Simulated assay, not measured.
Amino acid sequence: MSGQTFHVIGVAYTQSVLGAPTGTVSILQNGNAPSGTVTSYPLNGSYSGGFTGVGFAYLEGDLATSIDTPGSYNFTATYLGDANYLGSQTPFPVNVTVRTRPSISAGRLRRSP
Rank of each mutant, 00 (worst) to 15 (best):
1 M>F: 09
1 M>K: 07
1 M>D: 11
2 S>W: 00
2 S>E: 15
3 G>E: 05
4 Q>L: 10
5 T>G: 01
6 F>E: 09
7 H>D: 12
8 V>Y: 03
9 I>P: 01
10 G>D: 08
11 V>Y: 00
11 V>P: 01
12 A>S: 12
12 A>N: 05
12 A>W: 02
13 Y>H: 14
13 Y>I: 01
14 T>D: 06
15 Q>R: 13
16 S>H: 04
17 V>A: 11
18 L>V: 06
19 G>W: 07
19 G>R: 12
20 A>V: 05
21 P>R: 03
22 T>C: 01
23 G>Y: 08
23 G>N: 06
24 T>Y: 08
24 T>L: 04
26 S>L: 12
28 L>P: 00
28 L>G: 02
29 Q>V: 03
29 Q>T: 01
30 N>V: 07
30 N>L: 07
31 G>C: 11
32 N>Q: 15
33 A>L: 13
33 A>S: 15
34 P>C: 03
35 S>A: 14
35 S>F: 03
36 G>K: 07
36 G>W: 09
37 T>M: 09
37 T>E: 10
38 V>W: 02
38 V>F: 02
39 T>V: 14
39 T>G: 01
39 T>K: 06
39 T>W: 01
39 T>N: 05
39 T>E: 07
40 S>N: 14
40 S>Q: 15
43 L>K: 09
43 L>V: 10
43 L>Q: 13
43 L>M: 09
43 L>H: 07
44 N>E: 08
44 N>I: 00
45 G>T: 02
46 S>T: 09
46 S>R: 10
47 Y>K: 06
48 S>W: 07
50 G>K: 07
52 T>Y: 09
52 T>C: 00
53 G>S: 04
54 V>I: 15
54 V>S: 01
55 G>K: 12
56 F>S: 04
58 Y>W: 00
58 Y>L: 08
59 L>M: 02
60 E>N: 00
60 E>G: 05
61 G>I: 06
61 G>W: 06
62 D>C: 00
62 D>P: 00
63 L>P: 04
63 L>M: 06
63 L>N: 05
64 A>N: 12
64 A>D: 10
67 I>E: 09
67 I>S: 07
68 D>C: 00
69 T>S: 13
70 P>R: 06
70 P>M: 07
72 S>E: 14
75 F>M: 08
75 F>S: 05
75 F>V: 08
76 T>A: 12
76 T>G: 09
77 A>H: 04
78 T>Q: 11
80 L>F: 01
81 G>Q: 02
81 G>C: 03
83 A>G: 06
84 N>R: 12
85 Y>S: 07
85 Y>H: 05
86 L>P: 00
87 G>D: 01
92 F>A: 15
92 F>Y: 14
93 P>H: 12
94 V>Y: 11
94 V>S: 14
97 T>D: 14
98 V>P: 05
99 R>W: 04
102 P>Y: 09
102 P>D: 11
103 S>M: 11
103 S>P: 00
104 I>T: 15
105 S>R: 14
106 A>H: 09
106 A>N: 10
107 G>M: 10
109 L>I: 15
110 R>T: 15
111 R>G: 06
111 R>W: 10
112 S>G: 07
113 P>K: 10
113 P>C: 01
113 P>V: 11
113 P>F: 06
